[in-house]
Computed example of a mutant assay.
Amino acid sequence: MKKFIIPLFLMISGTIFSQVSVGTSSQNNNRWTFGGGIGFGFGSNNYFNLSAAPRVGYRLTNDLEGGVLGSISWQKSNAYSSTMLGVGPFLNYYIARTFYLSANYQHYFINYKDKIYDFKANEDEEALYLGGGYMQRIGNNSFMQIGLMYNVLWKENSSIFSSGLVPNIGFVIGL
């Protein structure tokens, strides 16, 4: 699986680099940033997951960015299916354009259907992710971000998520 995911992210990076490099001046006066990430997974029992997480930010200073991010995830297996939509604000602090610290709040709307027990549920859940990571320049003002976040609101027996720890890979244009 790793042999498939890493080349996919490299292809996406190359695509973003080629789109950003054309017509971009070295002087970046625009304070808006755009980015996000996509993901998918396969597993046993015909498990499939597809997700997207777009984000729009504004550089408050050269090293501080705030904005809004969203997420949508669709999961399906032989036993269940679910759709999850999340939205909330984020704040990133950049250290020498090599590392970043991040905080983001997400409010999730979850639609869950258990196929075995014929059970349906609509739930809401809140998450406050704190963490950080490494940034790699992929263009004039474009970066790939690789990091680790922890949901400080996560509770083992009352959350739909299996863990509070979340690895992430994303892209940002406009820094």
Rank of each mutant, 00 (worst) to 15 (best):
L10E: 10
W32T: 15
F42W: 10
S77G: 10
P89K: 12
G70M: 14
D114Q: 07
N151P: 06
S102N: 10
N168C: 01
L148I: 08
S13W: 06
G70W: 05
G139L: 12
T83W: 00
R59M: 15
F171G: 05
Q75G: 00
G147L: 08
N30V: 15
D118M: 00
Y150K: 08
N30W: 01
G132Q: 04
F171H: 10
L64F: 13
I116L: 09
M135P: 02
Q27C: 07
W74G: 08
T24F: 07
D114R: 08
H107S: 13
S25A: 14
I173L: 13
N151D: 13
N92Q: 06
V87D: 08
I116R: 10
N30D: 15
G174T: 09
S158V: 06
Q27E: 15
Y129A: 07
Y47C: 05
I6H: 04
Y134W: 14
A103C: 04
A53T: 12
R55Y: 02
V56W: 03
N62H: 11
R55I: 05
A96V: 12
N29E: 13
E156G: 04
A103L: 07
S73M: 09
N78K: 12
W74L: 14
Y117A: 11
N168V: 04
A53G: 10
S51C: 02
F9P: 01
G70E: 08
S71I: 01
F90E: 10
T83I: 05
P7V: 02
W74N: 12
Y94E: 06
L101W: 00
